[in-house]
Nucleic acid binder design. Structure first.
Length: 281
DNA sequence: ATCCAGGAAGTCG
DNA sequence: CGACTTCATGGA
C-alpha cells in the first residue's frame, strides 16, 4: 500500500485499493457521513476526515496511528484481489467494490453496533447508534459525539434502551452491556476464532451471524463468513442452492474460501446490495 | 396493506 | 439437534 504518514494526516496514493465510498458504504461501519466532498468517519472517541485531492486520498486526523491501523493500511489488497480474481465470478464481483478494505474497528463498539443491526436496515441502524452516542457519548465537536463508554451504558435502565427506538433489541442491549462488563472485553479478544465465536454467541442479542460480524470487523478474523439476507440471496442465485440453513451456508463458504472468507463475503455483500437483483450476468 | 431489513430467542417435536 | 414463531420500527 503506497501511503505516507504525517503529523496530522495520511496521504494515500494507491487509490485503486482505497475508496472511502466502497469502504464505508459496504455495511461494516455505521458512524460516518458525507460532508461536502469529504467523508467523516468515527470510531470510539476518534475522528477522521477523508478528502480526495489530486488523485490522492487524504485522511486528516489527530490520531494518525489509530487510523493507520483502522484502515488496515499495512495489508496488501492488490495481492488479495489478485488471488481471488483467478475465480471468474469473483473477478466480476470485485469490480463493483475494488476499493473495499475490511476495517479494524473497536471491538466493543462493533459488539454493540451489530446487536442493533440484527433484522434491521442500515439507514435505521445508523439512526439508532447516533441516538445512542448523542445521549450518552462524550461531546467531541459541535454535533459530533464519541461512542459511549461501557461503564456509562451499564448505569442506564431498560427504559433508556427502549427510548433508542431499537425495538425489541432494547432489552438485548440492556442485558448485553452488563454481561460485557462482568466478562471483561479483553478476555474475548485473545481467544482463537472458534472459541471466541462460541463465547460471543452466549451474549444476549448475539447469534451466529452477529458473532461472525464481530469477529470480522472487530477482531480482524478473516476465517468467518457472515450470512445475512443478502448473502443468502447470493448463495441461492450464484452458488449451489441446496442448503437452507444459514449456518450451513456459512460453513460452505468458509470451507470454500478459507482465510479469504471475510474478504469474499464483503465483496459479495457490497455488489449484491449495490446492484440489487442484477449483480452479474 | 404487505413485505423487508447485515437475525436472535423462545418454543415445540 | 431442526423447524417454526415472535419480536419493534420505519421505509418502500
Amino acid at each position: 500500500m503506497d501511503y505516507q504518514k504525517q503529523k496530522d494526516k495520511i496521504i494515500i496514493r494507491n487509490t485503486k485499493d482505497f475508496d472511502p465510498k466502497d469502504i464505508l458504504e459496504c455495511g461494516q461501519i455505521f458512524r460516518y457521513f458525507k460532508c461536502g466532498d469529504s467523508y467523516i468517519v468515527q470510531s470510539t472517541n476518534k475522528l477522521a476526515k477523508i478528502t480526495k485531492i489530486n488523485n490522492c486520498f487524504v485522511i486528516e486526523t489527530k490520531d494518525v496511528d489509530y487510523f493507520e491501523n483502522f484502515f488496515d493500511l499495512k495489508t496488501d489488497y492488490t495481492n488479495i484481489k489478485k488471488v481471488l480474481e483467478r475465480d471468474d465470478f469473483l473477478s466480476q464481483v470485485i469490480k463493483k467494490g475494488e476499493g473495499i478494505r475490511i476495517l479494524k474497528n473497536d471491538f466493543y463498539e462493533v459488539v454493540i453496533s451489530f446487536v442493533i443491526s440484527a433484522n434491521n436496515n442500515i439507514a435505521r441502524i445508523k439512526q439508532i447508534i447516533e441516538r445512542l452516542c448523542v445521549s450518552c457519548g462524550e461531546r467531541i465537536e459541535n454535533n459530533i459525539y464519541a461512542f459511549p463508554k461501557l461503564e456509562k451504558l451499564c448505569e442506564k435502565d431498560l427504559n433508556f434502551f427502549n427510548s433508542l427506538k431499537a425495538g425489541y433489541r432494547g432489552k438485548y442491549l440492556y442485558k448485553l452491556v452488563k454481561e460485557l462488563q462482568v466478562l471483561g472485553l479483553d478476555k474475548l479478544k485473545n481467544l482463537d476464532t472458534k472459541s471466541c465465536r462460541r463465547e460471543l454467541i452466549k451474549l444476549s442479542g448475539v447469534g451466529p451471524k452477529v458473532a461472525d460480524c464481530i469477529l470480522l470487523f472487530g477482531l480482524g478474523r478473516k476465517d468467518v463468513f457472515p450470512v445475512d439476507t443478502w448473502i443468502e440471496k447470493v448463495y441461492h442465485r450464484y452458488y449451489e442452492s441446496g442448503l437452507k440453513n444459514r449456518c450451513k451456508i456459512s460453513e460452505y463458504f468458509v470451507e470454500k474460501y478459507g482465510d479469504y472468507s471475510g474478504y469474499v463475503q464483503q465483496y459479495l455483500f457490497y455488489a449484491q446490495r449495490e446492484l440489487k437483483d442484477n449483480m452479474i450476468v
